[in-house]
Design a protein around this nucleic acid. Structure first.
Length: 348
DNA sequence: GAGACGTGGAC
DNA sequence: TGTCCAAGTCT
């Protein structure tokens, strides 16, 4: 006879096995009355959207060191924030992060609202993040439904319908398990379970606190769940990137338009990215191939970039020369950093 | 509601 | 090398 999954069983496991994370208040500290800082919870949740804990840690520490409060972040320069986010991906998050910090500072007196609807009205905060902040920062009994919770719910209830069709059903199941007390600990507990025990491949069912309640395990299909609709194949696009240095050693870069791919980020001038790109050098110069092409895969296409290099002092129509001293490759999104790595040996 | 939107690590 | 995936949101 299968047992019933209980939030108490999971909370008991969490009390012993909670991960220590830079933004987290441990269950023991919570019990002694320590409350999380909503700013840090919000920042961590935005960074964690579609991003691994390992990748987020250093960025979180850097951001909180540079901007300790939401007001500090609201007053920051856009370019500095985008540069600090470089490498973390999904750059709309950084643009919305700044918008959100400024709305919270200007319209909410620098205090994050503590209800879901107000939170979800803020830029970059959707259904998941509003629930996560409500639960983790304010201990409100909201139900978080992220990829972890979807996987855990689909397994313990053996939901065989594929995502995203099954999402409403998984939400109903998740809500039924959400306790009224210790909502913040519970939300983090179920996500920790998904991240450390109930993993996508080879789940560690033997040490799962919900082992005896898991219908997927009983049926022997836990590791196959959740089922997902097949993905579409990625097309390959091509492009040309132009790396130009002037006689002062400055590099020609441009800030990309806010909308679209790598929006708001620094990058090398280039052609369009298409099946058959049209060359578009930023200035007339003696362009030479760098000798290496750059390969990079985005979420929905593969990119092969031809890298061209030149030295010239002509004033370009687009972009600006960034002085040698203030140019940091780490300020670039990864694909643009790869372009620099492919080009730089030609300037040595 | 389906597609756009990044990256690095695991296998 | 290729595929999958990770605390989603926006349009």
């Amino acid at each position: 006879m299968r047992e019933t999954a209980s939030s108490d069983a999971l909370l008991s496991w969490y009390d012993r096995h909670a991960r220590q994370l830079p933004w987290r208040v441990s269950p023991q500290d919570r019990a002694s009355g320590i409350k999380p800082d909503p700013y840090r919870i919000w920042l961590s949740e935005v960074m964690l959207q579609q991003t691994t804990v390992a990748a987020v840690k250093d960025y979180f520490l850097k951001f909180t060191a540079l901007w300790p409060t939401v007001r500090d972040l609201a007053e920051a320069d856009d370019a500095e924030v985008m540069a600090a986010w470089a490498g973390l991906g999904y750059y709309a998050r950084a643009r919305n992060l700044l918008k959100c910090a400024r709305v919270v500072t200007d319209e909410h007196g620098g205090v994050f609202p503590n209800d879901r609807d107000s939170l979800q009205a803020l830029p970059g905060i959707g259904p998941y993040t509003s629930a996560a902040i409500s639960a983790i920062a304010f201990d409100l009994p909201e139900t978080v439904l992220d990829g972890n919770v979807e996987r855990v719910m689909s397994r313990i209830h053996a939901v065989e319908a594929p995502l995203p069709t099954s999402k409403p059903e998984l939400m109903t199941l998740a809500q039924a398990l959400t306790p009224q007390k210790r909502a913040g600990d519970y939300a983090q507990a179920v996500m920790d379970l998904g991240a450390t025990i109930c993993t996508p491949k080879s789940p560690a069912c033997g040490i799962c606190p919900w082992l005896d309640a898991c219908e997927g395990r009983e049926k022997g299909i836990a590791s196959e769940l959740p089922r997902k609709l097949p993905k579409k194949a990625k097309p390959t696009r091509r492009g040309i990137a132009y790396v130009l240095r002037n006689s002062d050693g400055a590099w020609l870069l441009e800030t990309r338009p806010d909308k679209g791919l790598l929006g708001g980020m620094l990058g090398w001038p280039g052609s369009d990215w298409a099946e058959d790109p049209i060359p578009a050098p930023p200035v007339s110069a003696d362009w030479q191939p760098a000798g290496m092409e750059v390969r990079h895969t985005f979420t929905h296409f593969h990119l092969v970039l031809n890298v061209m290099v030149a030295e010239a002092d002509l004033e370009p129509e687009l972009g600006e020369f960034i002085p040698h001293q203030s140019f940091r490759p780490s300020d670039l999104p990864t694909v643009m950093r790869k372009v620099f790595d492919a080009a730089k040996h030609r300037f040595e």
